[in-house]
């Protein structure tokens, strides 16, 4: 399923809403999560999962082709931990 299909499904389930509004609703949700992560905040959605940001410390890497060493800067990566309910549902049946 891609975002447009998710929106189509939401429009189908909510015939009283305009497609334009459903697009804004879905967009707002993901934008809010992204903005929180960009600030370094965590987003916890009980039953579904939690988004957080992990720090990857700076390290000395190596160019695998030339063997040359390169300094890799510290970076932050988004991380998602599946919620308990969803994890259990994925494994039912």
């Amino acid at each position: 399923m891609i975002k447009s299909e998710l929106i189509a499904k939401m429009v189908e389930n909510n015939p009283h809403l305009y497609q334009r509004d459903v697009e804004r609703i879905v967009g707002t949700i993901f934008d809010e999560i992204s903005t929180a992560l960009a600030k370094g905040d965590r987003v916890e959605l009980r039953g579904f999962g939690a988004f957080s940001v992990k720090c990857r410390p700076a390290r000395t890497g190596r160019n695998p082709r030339t063997g040359e060493t390169v300094e890799v800067e510290e970076k932050f990566v988004p991380y998602f931990k599946t919620g308990k309910d969803l994890r259990q549902k994925l494994n039912k049946g």
């Binding site: 399923m1 891609i2 998710l6 939401m10 609703i25 993901f30 579904f48 969803l86």
Partner: peptide, 21 residues
């Protein structure tokens, strides 16, 4: 319901792709 739709889709074994997210 957005979270539920995503969860249902995943439970059915289908991946969910949200562009730019």
């Amino acid at each position: 319901s957005v979270l539920d739709e995503i969860a249902d889709c995943l439970v059915s074994g289908d991946n969910v792709k949200i562009s730019s997210f």
